[in-house]
């Protein structure tokens, strides 16, 4: 049983770690969305993501 406890603790620890990692990524995404909306609001830029961003950056 000792071995199974060891395993359960290891599993739980790893699950918590990837949950935290995922949570930080999702939070980063939300924050970026908010900052972008705020900036676009100030600049009066269209809210839709532009498909031509790549080309525009490339030519910049």
């Amino acid at each position: 049983m000792e071995g199974m406890t060891y395993l359960a603790v290891a599993y739980l620890g790893m699950l918590v770690a990837i949950a935290l990692w995922t949570w930080t990524v999702v939070q980063r995404s939300r924050r970026l969305d908010q900052r972008l909306h705020a900036l676009e609001g100030v600049a009066g830029v269209d809210d839709q993501p532009r498909k031509s961003d790549d080309e525009a950056e490339h030519k910049a």
């Binding site: 990837i18 995922t22 990524v25 999702v26 980063r28 995404s29 970026l32 969305d33 900052r35 972008l36 900036l39 676009e40 100030v42 600049a43 830029v45 993501p49 961003d53 950056e57």
Partner: peptide
């Protein structure tokens, strides 16, 4: 599935960061 989800989210994040940086530059 999990790692593809992460990579898609990460690619979207990088695109957003570049868009934000471009907008800030213009501003």
């Amino acid at each position: 599935v999990f790692i593809i989800g992460h990579m898609l989210t990460s690619m979207r994040l990088t695109a957003l960061e570049q868009r934000l940086s471009n907008l800030q530059g213009q501003h």
